[in-house]
Structure formats: C-alpha cells, structure tokens
Design a protein around this nucleic acid. Structure first.
Lengths: 245, 245
DNA sequence: ACAAAAGTGTTATCAGTACACCCATGC
DNA sequence: GCATGGGTGTACTGATAACACTTTTGT
C-alpha cells in the first residue's frame, strides 16, 4: 500500500544527462498525453518533469531520491535542491487544469525542485513505463505546468555551480579524456575554450589523475584517459576568499 | 479578516542586519516564551526566526515580503529564497511540541526559507510587538525548531554570494567608507584583509564612486565617503566563465 | 602634542590569455 | 598516405599578495 501523501507539496526533478559521444547535455522528460473520450480530440500532448508528492513520513531529499529511482532505477546520483516554486497559479494553464482534473493533485501545490547529474548511458529508456525521453537542454519540447521555468533555473544554477565545484565529473564516465571535459564545459556554458590553456589547467590539478590507459575502439589517435579523485580533491581543497565583485 | 492560510507551508525569514558602528553582523530573532498555567514553570524560553504561513492567494516571495514588513515595517529590502526545509520531524523537539500544541500549525510543516539584508539602524525595535532582538550571527541564543540550522545555511549562502555579487552594499548605508566595506567583509567571512590591497581593488571599480564628502562627527581624521552605483555596475558587468575548480 | 584611524607604493609571483603547428593513429 | 582529432610551448598581460610608514584630523 502506498504511504500517505502530502497533497499540496511535491518534488520535481530536473534530470540532467550528458551524452559524451554526441556532446549533448540533455534533460529527461516524460510524456503527458490525453484524448477526449468522446471526440478523440487531443487535449494534452506535451512533456513534463518527473515528480511526485512528498510522503508524510519522508524528507524532501528522500522524495527526490525515490522519484529518481522510480524513473531511472538509479540511486546515489548527485542531487541538489535548488529552489521551491509555489506561485498560486503555477498549475493553472488551461491544459494543466484539464490534466489535473482527475488527479489527486491540489491545485495550489508547492514544489521543491531538485536537479540530478548523471550520464545518459546509465539510463535504460527501452522499458520505461513513463515514456521518458532525453531532450537537449537547448531544444526542449513544449512543457506543461511551469516546468520550462524550473528547467531554466536549474540550468542557471548548474552553470554557476560547475565553475566553482567539480560537479562536472558527475556527468562524465569514470575514465575520461581532457577533451571530453572541455566539450562538456562548452556544452554547458555555451562558450568556446582554448584547448591548450584548458589542458594545462586541468592536467596541473593534483586530483586529475592520468591513468596508464588510452581510449580503445576509436578510429583515430586514442586519447589519454584520466580520472577525477574526490579523495585528493577533498584533501587539496582550500576555501579561497577571493572577492570578485 | 485574515486571508486563508495554507496550514502546512510557511516562510521563515533570516533577517541579517549589519551594524556599521559595532562592526557586527546580526540576525533578528523573536522571543518564544511560555509558562505553565498551573505551576508557573517555564516551559519554553528561547528564540525563533520570524515566519508565517503562506496565504492561499499569495506567492512565496510575497509571503516573505509580508513577514518582513510585519516585523520591521520595511519593504524593498534585498531578499533571497535559499532553501526549503521539510523534514518530517523538524518541529518535533519536546519544546516545539509544547509550543505548537495550541497553535494552528501543522506538525509537518514545510518551510521555504529566505534571507534579507539590511542595516540594523533601519529597524526600530522600541515598539516591537514580538520582542524582536538582534543577535550577532556568531553568538546566537538557544533557538527553537530547526531555526539554528536554517540560520547556518543562510549564512553559508551569504558568505558565498557576497564574493561574487555586490550584495554587500545592501548591508551598508548609502554613503560609506572603504574601511567600512572592508570591516563588513571581515565580519561576514571571518578573515583578515590587507587594507592597501583592498582599497586599491575597490577604488579601481568604476561603480565605486568617490563623493565630494567626508565623514562628519568623528573624533579622528574623517574618511572619504563613497557610494555604490548599481546603474554603473549593471552597465560594466560582464559574465566571466572562469573555471576555478 | 598626542591618539587614532586614514591613506599611500613597490615588487614578486602567479594565473590567465592569445596564438599555430606537429604528431600519432586507424583506416 | 591521408584524414582526424590529440597533443604541445611561449610570450604578454593583468591581478593578487606581501609588506611598513606617513598624514590628517579632533581632542
């Protein structure tokens, strides 16, 4: 039996997935589709974030973890609560009203929004019951509720955060090349980075560790593989108080 | 008549106030006091943040603005929503249970936490009906609910944010001296800053504008006064994508 | 004249930026 | 042998960090 829900509080999850081979930063969305029973007109046909009510006995973090697991089967991924959305009319567009008419949704639901960072390859969409699908963060489909705004704000937070914390590696495989890291930064930030300067900078970090291994199965010069050591990072890390206003 | 409340969602406000003369970064707290009607034992005697339920017709931001206005009379202050706190047991300490027994509080209330930045001198505590009081952020009294943690997290956010955005000036009078800015950074960050380097850095900013005015009424060499121009800041500002991981 | 805080300059070091070609490999 | 992306070095510039004494004012 399902635990009791808090009907006016939900958690919504922006699942960011990076695809190293296509160099695309994606968001995982689920289909929202409804036809009129009488006329067969399409009433709702768009996408939404995955989310769910908070159970009465769980923390917000636990709700987020549960929602991600139900959607992707994954646990232990990087997650961040970044904002609460609670405008009285955030679920009040015509389509949203049609959609929630039958649901046990409260019309004034406040949602606590999280984002997750993972690799698209880690998610098996074949057998997904929610018809979940990846969309490039810069080419999103039509979105229900206020989920467009939620994604935009998650993405803004990610852009800022990836500059000061090594969360980027959550989006990459365990072993990666320097150019893959550069490509990822470029995808996220939408900028061009000088390869020589970037390499030098990254390779000089003590927590970026060159492995005795190269890429295999590529039809060109195979690149040196590296890993990120959180252990070394935590040891080496020191807060800096550089005021840059 | 009071608008209808959402009984399980509240906004809590961490009001930071800086006192330029004592160089103290403070938090505004209200008294929580309850005696047993029979034995006159003191049941609850501590402090809490100011907060209130969200009304059914207002946004979260509006709730925060309203709460601040009711406590201080002030509007238009810098405000930031920084985190939602929703653990099932966040109001479940023995004292908290005594306190909320008579209140129309839901025991599982999720709170959206905001912080405000202002000057202690702007708040008149004389006639305050909540017995509000300033406490140095590093010398907080005993706090109810999970408000200690909320303050700590607000303070962490402020420490990070003041390094990259000119929010520091929200805590200072309109006209200020360079040394006052330095003192404030030192208070917030708990560090020592070299005065010569700091002066040079700040004075070189185009948006720090020297006024044709000096301090008055000080019993020493009066210092040059400056102001912060948001207009110039917004013009001059350019995003930088410096990766510092 | 004294106390108190304001204000000032130089040097060394480090990090960021700009920039163009050769190299190794798989096919 | 050629196409593809991997990998490399140098010089310039600007910012930060370290450091101690003189100046101005009110009392």
């Amino acid at each position: 039996m399902e635990p009791e829900k808090i009907l006016n509080i939900s958690v919504d999850c922006v699942v960011f997935g990076y695809d190293t081979s296509t160099k695309s930063l994606n968001v995982l969305l689920i289909k929202r589709y409804l036809e009129s029973e009488t006329t067969k007109d399409i009433l709702v046909d768009d996408y939404v974030l995955t989310g769910y009510h908070v159970y009465k006995t769980e923390t917000l973090d636990e709700t987020a973890t549960r929602v991600l697991k139900e959607l992707t089967g994954l646990t232990g991924q990087y997650k961040k609560q970044f904002k609460a959305f609670g405008d009285p009319d955030r679920l009040m567009n015509p389509k949203d009203l049609i959609w929630i008419k039958n649901a046990e949704f409260h019309k004034r639901t406040t949602t606590i929004a999280y984002y997750f960072l993972l690799k698209t390859e880690d998610v098996d969409l074949k057998n997904n019951k929610n018809k979940a699908q990846w969309f490039p963060v810069n080419a999103l489909p039509e979105l229900g509720f206020d989920h467009k705004q939620i994604i935009v704000e998650a993405y803004e937070d990610l852009k800022v955060k990836c500059l000061s914390e090594p969360i980027i590696f959550k989006l990459l495989p365990y072993k990666f090349t320097i150019n893959e890291v550069q490509d990822l930064y470029q995808s996220i930030l939408g900028i061009e980075i000088d390869n020589r300067n970037f390499r030098r900078k990254l390779i000089n970090k003590k927590y970026i560790i060159a492995l005795d291994e190269k890429q295999v199965g590529v039809s060109k010069k195979p690149a040196q593989l590296y890993m990120f050591s959180k252990e070394v990072y935590d040891t080496v890390f020191q807060k800096n108080y550089l005021i840059s206003i």
